[in-house]
């Protein structure tokens, strides 16, 4: 591809499942090239068939190894599997070491598996800004199961639940007690809990803690709701991988049967809209901020101004309309409809 291949042409090739075209489109989505916007719009319209599985958990909990084993299991069930593995970018240089692929060497050279590493590039929440564009591209490229592996997250990065049809939270033994398990945040988003490294003797304690945590919530649940399960998995000796694949399929089938899948699609669309708008706003804002930043930071540092008034001035520059005007415009727009 020495000449610059137009993105519209790449869409045609990607739709035929050509891997180089799929890969290049993902790169262009990451770059946010204006040239590829119409192509990505076409991709978005065509996508929506694949089952998107989100895998999240703390750093070192064994997500990548689990993803590799899960993908191998799904391959045995005749799924075409794409994996998007997100790793952090350096807050200092912006660079990254994308090391998830190294845990997935067993999958190498299987044409039914595609692995793409992505750096967060400053995005928070566990994914990169273009992760969901990549999901659509892979969907149109013919992959029926797409696994998003988030960066290693803490307690509060829960965006993956708003981006996937089935969310798997991986917990590793030895990191906390039963109070840790009833805290709000990451543990709440799981459709399926996985306890990794369950060849270790302390893993059963965590399985019990998580199960107890789930029973505490039973009283306030609608009986029709999905009840998350806890599965002990060992990538070391292979325990639980088959069970996990079956549970993921059961969750998908149950969601489709009850209409929860549609609710989830709506939530994903709404989240996508919000995140995209946020990105546009931030880009626009940073353009205004960058030239003014050094001078304003200096006045703040000398305590000549306060952060609120300085920031307010910046925002007014980036978004000339005041909040009141924006609200008026929104009301007028709603009335017209």
């Amino acid at each position: 591809m020495k000449r610059f291949v137009p993105s519209s042409e790449l869409v045609v090739r990607a739709s035929r499942g050509e891997i180089p075209a799929i890969s290049r489109l993902i790169t262009r989505a990451e770059m946010g090239l204006d040239e590829c916007r119409p192509a990505l719009a076409e991709i978005y319209r065509k996508a929506g068939k694949a089952h998107v599985i989100g895998i999240t958990g703390v750093p070192g909990s064994g997500k990548s190894t689990l993803v590799a084993n899960l993908a191998a299991q799904l391959r045995r069930r005749n799924k075409k599997v794409a994996i998007i593995a997100v790793d952090p970018s350096s807050p200092y240089s912006g660079g990254s070491i994308l090391g998830d692929r190294i845990r997935m060497t067993e999958l190498a050279s299987d044409p039914g598996v595609y692995i793409r590493s992505m750096a967060t590039r400053g995005a928070v929440g566990g994914m990169a800004r273009s992760t969901l564009d990549a999901v659509d591209i892979l969907d149109v490229g013919g992959f029926d199961t797409i696994i998003i592996e988030t960066v290693g997250v803490g307690q509060d990065e829960v965006e993956i639940a708003k981006a996937s049809h089935t969310t798997v939270v991986v917990s590793a033994p030895g990191l906390g007690d039963e109070i840790q398990a009833i805290k709000a945040g990451m543990l709440e988003i799981a459709d399926i809990h996985v306890v990794s490294k369950c060849d270790r003797s302390d893993s059963n304690k965590l399985v019990v803690d998580l199960k107890q945590m789930l029973t505490l919530g039973l009283a306030s649940k609608d009986p029709k709701d999905w009840l998350p399960t806890v599965i002990g998995v060992s990538s070391y000796n292979g325990t639980g991988i088959d069970e996990l694949a079956t549970e993921i399929e059961r969750h998908r089938a149950a969601s489709l049967a009850t209409g929860r899948a549609h609710q989830r699609e709506l939530a994903i669309a709404s989240f996508r809209l919000e995140k995209t708008a946020e990105t546009l706003l931030i880009e626009r804002f940073l353009k205004t901020l960058e030239p003014l930043r050094p001078a304003l930071a200096s006045t703040l540092c000398k305590r000549e101004r306060d952060p609120y008034s300085a920031a307010n001035e910046l925002v007014s520059n980036a978004l000339p309309q005041s909040i009141d005007q924006t609200e008026q415009a929104a009301r007028a727009w709603t009335r017209r409809r």
């Binding site: 912006g94 660079g95 990254s96 070491i97 994308l98 090391g99 692929r101 050279s109």
Partner: peptide, 16 residues
């Protein structure tokens, strides 16, 4: 390369 702002993917040992 990371410190120079690049995205680096390392294959690991013994690849074909």
């Amino acid at each position: 390369l990371r410190d120079a702002g690049m995205d680096v993917i390392y294959s690991g040992l013994h690849r074909t």
